[in-house]
């Protein structure tokens, strides 16, 4: 990480450590789950140039696996979280292997189609509870700490988020990340330099799916349930919106985007009812038309312009 990013990271971490004193911890945990989901998605879209339109299936799939592991098999919380993550990564491997054979819009369509197939599987399969979802998932304990106490769980969720965020940053700034950027920039050239781009894309896809799964698994523990909503294509669209609104291909963009969207949904849900969908749509249109680089992207550009003016 560059120095500025490290400073921002530590600053954000300090804020988050103190956050439950001022804000309802469940809301912050929800924001953190979706922020992780968006960051995982951004690894694929922003740094590899792959638009997956079925990412909700990893969020939802992991949510079910974790819910099942904790409720039915009564496994420890950490093991349950891990099971969800691994399941999502495995599902990512299957879907990724099929999708990376195509490019651009076809890639997006393949991911959407496969995600829909898995969605209907979730709808019909007995272990998901169908339309009712998986209710009453126990939070369990961690090293003797009772996780049903919100504040205890909060710090576990924060640790998961901080660790995953760090891993994503490390991936972006790793030898592997360098090749991902090369593929994003010019795929034929990367091939002509001898890189087997399919393998790089697949690994990026699996990493992204696994981390999206971790977000879903954590979400199940927070809310004590897993539902079809998590795996629905609306959620796949929402993560695109979060990433674009915050700033695709920026470090903090997805976090900002997820924060804005989740907070807005939370605030508006009981005030405007189903109009919230219209408002989200309007935000999306404005974002695409007026500030394509997203909140973080536009702010950075503005900052650079000001610095440039000073220097000039």
């Amino acid at each position: 990480m560059s120095r500025r990013v490290t400073i921002a990271y530590l600053l954000g971490l300090a804020l988050l450590l103190a956050a439950p004193m001022f804000i309802y911890p469940i809301l912050v945990m929800k924001v953190l789950c979706f922020a992780l989901f968006a960051c995982a998605f951004n690894l694929l879209l922003g740094y590899t140039g792959l638009l997956s339109f079925g990412h909700a299936v990893f969020l939802g799939g992991a949510a079910y696996v974790t819910g099942h592991a904790l409720k039915v098999w009564e496994l420890p919380t950490l093991v349950g979280l891990l099971a969800g993550t691994v399941a999502a990564a495995a599902l990512g491997w299957v879907i990724g292997s099929l999708a990376i054979r195509r490019q651009g819009i076809y890639f997006a369509m393949v991911t959407l189609a496969l995600a829909q197939m898995v969605y209907f599987l979730f709808l019909q399969a007995p272990f998901t509870g169908g339309e009712d979802g998986l209710q009453g998932v126990p939070r369990g304990t961690l090293f003797g700490l009772d996780l049903s106490v919100d504040i205890n769980l909060y710090y576990l969720v924060l640790a998961i988020f901080a660790g995953s965020f760090w891993l994503i940053q490390r991936t972006i700034h790793s030898p592997f990340g360098q090749i991902l950027k090369a593929i994003r920039e010019n795929e034929p050239r990367a091939i002509s330099l001898g890189y087997d781009v399919a393998k790089y894309k697949l690994l990026a896809f699996v990493l992204s799916a696994g981390l999206a799964g971790l977000a879903g698994a954590t979400k199940t523990v927070v809310f004590k349930f897993a539902t079809l909503t998590d795996a629905h294509w609306h959620t796949s669209g929402e993560v695109v919106l979060m990433t674009l609104l915050g700033g695709m291909g920026t470090v903090f963009g997805p976090v900002v985007g997820a924060t804005v969207i989740v907070t807005l949904q939370n605030e508006l849900a009981d005030k405007v009812g189903s109009l919230v969908t219209v408002i989200m749509g309007a935000i999306f249109v404005i974002c695409v038309l007026a500030f394509r680089r997203g909140i973080v992207g536009e702010s950075l550009a503005l900052y650079r312009r000001m610095i440039g003016q000073k220097a000039g």
Partner: peptide
């Protein structure tokens, strides 16, 4: 270098 898949290493 053979580290091109090492996503956990620093660049």
């Amino acid at each position: 270098l053979g580290t091109s898949f090492h996503f956990w290493k620093s660049d």
